[in-house]
């Protein structure tokens, strides 16, 4: 049984075609990132999947049932933006509600609160929450029922580094436990840290790509004797470019050891060495023709 089965899904707003005959099937656990520029229709896509918006045509099945059947939400959760929260209720009130409608025992609230790390403020009203606290609450509400399919709309928005790390860990653990996760984001650096499976939304089409083929590793090297290092890099056919403090070197066919040997050979004083992995960003640039004017 496919966790998510989308068949020929289309949606237009006036003359703008947001989704154009999308067909997609996901039948295994894991994390998929839904990526695209602002306004491309990521939220609309997720809203249609959860039946919050109607599609013009096509069908959606979640965990084997039509998305129009409210019972699918026993096994499907959707983390929306924080405007769905009620400012005058506490975090506990929200969790209690979700727990009740899923007919789960109350102890589940305590478990999920601890898991997400929000013990300190569950009794506070949401109006007093920071952006990160709200995201934690939304996540807790979304995972309280241990869903088979978890949809997340911009879950990493507004998170401080600690929260972002926690969020990444939780998503990883859920995926490991068998949850299928689809998250929308435009933070490509964060996406790269969470998954290599990307769903690019472009011109109404969904392009499912694995980022392994696009992954590139760069090293930023700060050196004192730039000319000698430059001549050696050229001689050994490294793909590189000069920067203010040294070089940005792309590891292609050569490995990291070859680069270290080269630096050793040059006898140059290496002041700094930093690794940079790019994957989705590069592909994104290609797909959406990002350029400087």
């Amino acid at each position: 049984m496919a966790v998510l089965a989308i068949n020929n899904l289309s949606k237009s707003f006036k003359n703008h075609r947001v989704l154009d005959g999308i067909t997609l099937t996901i039948d295994s656990p894991g994390i998929w990132a839904l990526v695209g520029p602002n306004g491309v229709g990521k939220t609309t896509f997720l809203n249609i999947l959860t039946n919050l918006s109607p599609a013009d045509s096509g069908s959606v099945k979640l965990v084997g049932k039509s998305n129009k059947d409210y019972k699918v939400f026993k096994d499907v959760s959707f983390l929306q933006d924080n405007t769905v929260l009620f400012d005058y209720l506490t975090g506990y009130d929200h969790l209690k509600y979700v727990c009740d409608v899923h007919k789960l025992p109350s102890k589940r609230i305590q478990e999920v609160v601890q898991y997400v790390g929000m013990e300190r403020y569950t009794k506070k009203t949401v109006g007093d929450y920071s952006l990160g606290m709200k995201q934690h609450l939304l996540l807790a509400m979304a995972i309280i029922n241990e869903p088979k399919l978890l949809l997340l709309d911009e879950p990493l928005n507004g998170l401080d580094p600690t929260s972002a790390i926690l969020m990444r860990k939780i998503l990883g653990q859920l995926a490991d436990k068998g949850t299928t996760i689809i998250l929308s984001s435009h933070n490509l650096a964060e996406v790269d840290r969470v998954t290599k499976q990307i769903l690019f939304l472009k011109d109404g089409k969904l392009l499912e790509e694995h980022m392994d083929s696009y992954e590139k590793v760069y090293y930023h090297i700060a050196v004192q004797d730039k000319p000698s290092v430059a001549s050696l890099l050229t001689a050994k056919a490294f793909d590189f470019m000069e920067t203010d403090k040294g070089f940005k070197v792309l590891l292609g066919s050569q490995d990291f050891q070859s680069l270290l040997d080269l630096l050793h050979q040059s006898g140059a004083y290496v002041k700094d060495l930093q690794k940079e992995i790019t994957g989705s960003e590069k592909r994104y640039e290609e797909l959406f023709e990002v350029g400087m004017v």
Partner: peptide, 16 residues
């Protein structure tokens, strides 16, 4: 536009 609580209810296993 800034209060969308209804959407929270719509993604719960509760009939309309």
């Amino acid at each position: 536009k800034k209060k969308k609580g209804l959407q929270l209810h719509f993604v719960q296993p509760v009939s309309k």
